[in-house]
Design a binder for these strands. Structure first.
Lengths: 144, 144
DNA sequence: TATATAATTGATATTGAATTTCATTTGCAG
DNA sequence: CTGCAAATGAAATTCAATATCAATTATATA
């Protein structure tokens, strides 16, 4: 946790971005919640601690947190951008149940490697990649 | 081409959806354009043939075309949904240049297989999957 | 430490794609 | 033909993302 906050502090310094209580609070809430949060989710959580913090501030803060490399944007295709932890979290894909909406994070080094090979083949310099597998989870398999 | 139109016709019949000139025109335009079209793109193309067709009709038609299994939604993360051909088009991923926006369709059977293996491992019944690799293409590599 | 000043905040407004509404038109079954 | 439910097109609505702006606040420096 603390390391992540240091990274954030250094990022702010490097970019000439000021410290603020609000941003610290938002970062704390984000770091202590291991979920895929939308901006509104995060806003509601932050509200519980400091009800004065506005939506716009949360929105701007999570953007900075992303830029600092601590969050990653994920898109489950439901019209809302979500943010997940990036620091010390392996790159992974998502397996999303189209019935109940639940998802699993999956990591496969072999796929990662093949993706890089693919990029090389097309003389592409890869920066990041996404992978989503949509389907039905075990529980929903039997449902209609 | 004709086969795709037949699939569409049968889909309409099965679903009890009526025939209409507009829908036929929209399907024709879609099938004859090998691009990743947004709804607005498609609307503009359709306008050239039948200027009376409205945006909402195009929007509704491409949804039906997707449901019929002839189009697939793709999301490049630029805020607009795109549609690409699905019928007789291998499943593929996309390699997207973050500088110029160009993209390449990539197919890798090995990755496909690993994805299925991954799904099996988690007792997931896969329906579809997406893969995007973001990076810089050869031309943009040297640019600042 | 006081002050200048530029970044930040929070309320609100704007944007833009996706989706819905509804009166009119149209396909098609009987 | 006729009735009626589905389809159309224009316009309205929705909603997340983003921008605006006056008031506030962090911080460098005098």
């Amino acid at each position: 946790m603390e390391m992540a906050k240091q990274i954030f502090t250094f990022y702010l310094r490097d970019e000439g971005i000021r410290y603020s209580q609000q941003r610290e609070c938002i970062l704390d809430v984000f770091l202590s919640t291991e979920k895929h949060l939308t901006v509104i989710d995060l806003y509601h959580l932050v509200q519980k601690k400091h009800s004065g913090i506005g939506y716009a501030t949360v929105y701007r803060a999570i953007k900075i947190i992303s830029q600092a490399g601590l969050a990653r944007e994920v898109d489950f295709g439901d019209g809302m951008l979500r943010f997940e932890h990036k620091y010390k979290h392996e790159h992974h894909g998502h397996m999303i149940c189209t019935k109940c909406g639940k998802f699993i994070e999956v990591v496969d080094p072999q796929i990662e490697e093949l993706q890089e090979k693919l990029a090389r083949k097309y003389k592409f310099t890869p920066q990041r990649h996404k992978m989503q597998i949509y389907g039905t989870c075990e529980k929903c398999k039997t449902k209609v």
